[in-house]
Design a binder for these strands. Structure first.
Lengths: 336, 336
DNA sequence: TATTGGCACTCGATAGAATAGAGTGCTAGG
DNA sequence: CCTAGCACTCTATTCTATCGAGTGCCAATA
């Protein structure tokens, strides 16, 4: 039966994708006969392409143009020809290595620099999501007196990030009371995930209790702040599409960070690394594909990086880049 | 002599700008005669427009189209008709008020939210630069022991921002030594601008001296990190121009943060709030204008906000928005 | 039976010609 | 000094003709 994908058909599909990704123009049978490593005549290729079209892998922009891949065609290409453990370009491999040995500074900077690295490697828009608050543990809580009525609350988490907030008190507080509260909070909260904070039981000392309640309230706020997204590469979007309308739609969508984050989550939760066009389920991104990879710190998946480009993207290269960067980021964060 | 700008010519120029900003199409004499509050015939208007063209305020895309303003035309418009103390729209005024009373959280978030506010108010790209390191003073320096060989360096600055870094030591250090170093640093550095840090003179205690040198080194690094830029509104750029090439050029330029920052500095240093097209001196931004305003915290200019849009922008509205937001931001930062 | 050369056909892209209309500059008369 | 009138210019639009890339199909072939 015709629905069977024999190896020649697959080779033709592969060649169409490769060619179209490179040239952005519908691929015809004669071009394939010349270029691809397929030793049959254009007529034979036409027959195969006809089948591939009826099976939904290829489509024609109009009668008498070449074929371009459908989302289903890209999907087959990715599943069949792009192996995950990819032999990546040597050059970009080196630059990623270099980046992560040189990287330093605050966590936020690390993430946005990583996002920039990824966008520059691939020429598509890059997304880096910060640690998931469920996996971030409180390491220490400090209260530092600024003046009698104002106290700096300081939290260091298990990823080395520091969050702070100034607490305003209604009455003066002494250094010794602060120390009691500080010690109590650290003892009580060390190792607790930022995502699940209970009310502390009262100690009986009204001032200390007041400040503990305030502190826990503020720590809860930190949860929102740790869930961070870094998206870079708007200009690459403008290079990837030539309809300004598409550019606008994609950029508008990328600016809705929560949408991008849940998109990436969805893909990962299905065990996928690639989502193509209509698979995304987001109309404005119908012409886009997303490539994602989680990164692992000390054996735990804490966040993910992703890439948003046109469906017509160089999947092997992009997958290699995403894998490389996520590995590098995980390793770097495990050290520091 | 014909170079004189009488009030009727000025009114015509003004009407051309207003009309062109709204409709994005070359403005003809008959349209002006109908629309503008100018009670003369199209023929008279044509004569005046001819003069305005020869004087460089207007130009024709081609022989028989209407006129559009040149950069010089926009400049005259802004200098003459846009008063700085502007009666702003009531609606946006309220939303800005509301934003700043509700705003909270870390400084970085404050800035990026402000940038988003500004881009949404105006529909152009927004820039917010964080405090200038020259005006940021060190308020306190703390050293907190993480384990015997690792110390958390913590700096609070005069704007309430906190920077931190983990110092790795070659030998163990005791709590008491840490305290000596901590006190010494705070005493020595309180009130010193982050931009001008000297080497501390040695105390004689090798361990304390070692850590002080390390600490000052790290504090210097903080300087770079405090100089932050928040640029939002890439999608607005895609809406503002209809040539995808222009969109790309502008977005690429906006991604070079240092360029944007120095651009804003240049404009402000000339005492200007608006720079138009060629005045920017940056080829890729030839079709853009920039509107800026510094913001003042406790009587001191610490940073600035800006806006990048097409030269064909609604200057009165944008100037009002920029002024409003810079005032709001300054006030908000003065409180917290 | 699978492959291939030949061929008619389709349809977008390109170029040229004709037309309409918007807007101008100029001139002559109020 | 202003303006009505008019000839002129140039773009945008429409229509037509043509070109050519690429197809689907069929008959011939190995």
């Amino acid at each position: 039966m015709s629905g069977f994908m024999d190896s020649r058909k697959a080779a033709i599909l592969r060649a169409v994708v490769d060619e179209y990704v490179q040239c952005a123009e519908p691929v015809g049978s004669s071009l394939l006969a010349r270029v691809a490593g397929i030793q049959v005549s254009p007529a034979t290729i036409r027959n195969e392409m006809n089948l591939l079209e009826h099976e939904g892998y290829l489509t024609q922009p109009h009668t008498s143009a070449g074929r371009i891949p459908t989302d289903k065609g890209y999907r087959y290409y990715v599943d069949t020809f792009v192996n995950d453990a990819n032999d990546s370009d040597i050059i970009q491999f080196q630059s990623v290595e270099e980046f992560f040995t040189k990287a330093h500074g605050a966590l936020a900077e690390m993430f946005s620099d990583t996002s920039r690295l990824l966008t520059n490697l691939t020429n598509y828009a890059a997304v880096v999501t910060g640690p998931n608050p469920e996996t971030v543990l409180i390491r220490s809580v400090q209260l530092i007196s600024l003046d009698p009525k104002r106290v700096l609350l300081l939290m260091v988490d298990s990823k080395g990030a520091v969050e702070k907030k100034t607490l305003e008190l209604s009455t003066d507080i002494s250094e010794s009371e602060l120390e009691v509260a500080s010690n109590f909070l650290t003892r009580r909260l060390r190792g607790v995930p930022l995502g699940s904070l209970d009310e502390p039981e009262p100690l009986g000392e009204p001032l200390v209790d007041q400040i503990c309640v305030l502190a826990v309230e503020s720590l809860r706020e930190f949860q929102g702040e740790t869930e961070s997204v870094y998206i870079e590469g708007a200009s690459k979007v403008a290079s990837a599409f030539d309809a300004v309308d598409t550019v606008r739609r994609v950029l508008v969508t990328l600016e809705q960070h929560f949408l991008v984050v849940s998109l990436i989550r969805d893909v990962l939760s299905k065990g996928q690394k690639v989502a193509i066009g209509s698979e995304l389920g987001i109309a404005p991104l119908a012409e886009c594909s997303v490539v994602v990879s989680p990164y692992v710190v000390e054996g735990e998946q804490v966040g993910s990086i992703g890439l948003v480009g046109p469906t017509r993207m160089n999947y092997p290269k992009v997958l290699a880049a995403v894998n490389l960067v996520s590995a590098g980021l995980g390793k770097r964060l495990s050290e520091g």
